[in-house]
């Protein structure tokens, strides 16, 4: 029995789960489901339906990959809790994938591309990467910036994913969507050389949300 990879992506309003498996007679090797990411209530039910539709047994799963953001902390935390517990229960590895890196597979080759995502409170998430033939190089890891720095973070003429409305001037985006879907996480895993049977996940992150803000927002703890 060959293995299969499960991916969970819950960083935005639209969540998805996907499974990649050995190609069947029709050449089909991927199945994905989209659902509302709100509070992750349906996540396990979606995974159950996903595997049934794909004809994959849960014992075939060889690893769980989870999108770790940037994005909604609640959605990411539920996704990571599921990934970690499934990893424990099924005795398979799990790892986190930075959403922007997976999305970079859509960027033109050998060009810098930025990501700008509204982080609310007049702040943005920003990161930049370069896609080469065999790697996604991180030029600037995800961080939070005041929204007023959006213009300067993305030099004029450089490509970006995100909402053009975050800039004060007019710019054309590679796409408004900055978070990947679960299939794109699996595509990124394949791009990184992850196999179905004996996945090596060392190149990825821990299954922990990208917490780019402090947990407590008061300026200082009580004396």
């Amino acid at each position: 029995m060959t293995g299969a990879l499960l991916a969970i992506e819950q960083s935005g309003r639209e969540a998805s789960v996907a499974v990649r498996f050995e190609a069947d007679a029709q050449g089909r090797d991927l199945h994905m489901r989209f659902f509302s990411g709100q509070r992750g209530v349906t996540l396990l039910s979606e995974i159950d339906d996903l595997l049934k539709e794909a004809g994959v047994n849960k014992n075939q799963l060889s690893a769980v990959l989870v999108g770790i953001g940037p994005g909604s902390y609640t959605g990411l935390r539920i996704a990571c809790a599921a990934a970690r517990t499934l990893s424990f229960a099924l005795e398979i590895p799990c790892a986190g994938v930075v959403g922007f890196q997976a999305k970079m597979l859509e960027a033109p080759l050998d060009q810098t591309a930025h990501f700008v995502l509204d982080a609310y409170r007049k702040e943005i998430y920003h990161a930049s990467y370069r896609r080469t033939r065999d790697a996604i190089e991180t030029l600037s890891a995800p961080l939070i910036l005041p929204q007023e720095q959006c213009d300067s973070a993305v030099p004029l003429g450089e490509a970006f994913f995100g909402d053009p409305g975050l800039f004060t001037d007019e710019r054309a985006s590679l796409g408004a969507q900055t978070n990947p879907n679960a299939a794109q996480i699996l595509d990124y895993a394949a791009f990184c050389g992850v196999t179905l049977d004996a996945p090596r996940l060392e190149v990825f992150e821990n299954a922990t949300p990208l917490y780019l803000r402090a947990a407590a927002f008061r300026s200082s703890p009580k004396a």
Binding site: L43, L44, K58, T74
Partner: peptide, 19 residues
Amino acid sequence: LLGSLLVGVTAAKSLSWAW
């Protein structure tokens, strides 16, 4: 606390499904 409950409930559902 919703954010706290969700971690335990998600873990429990994951175990229930996996096992």
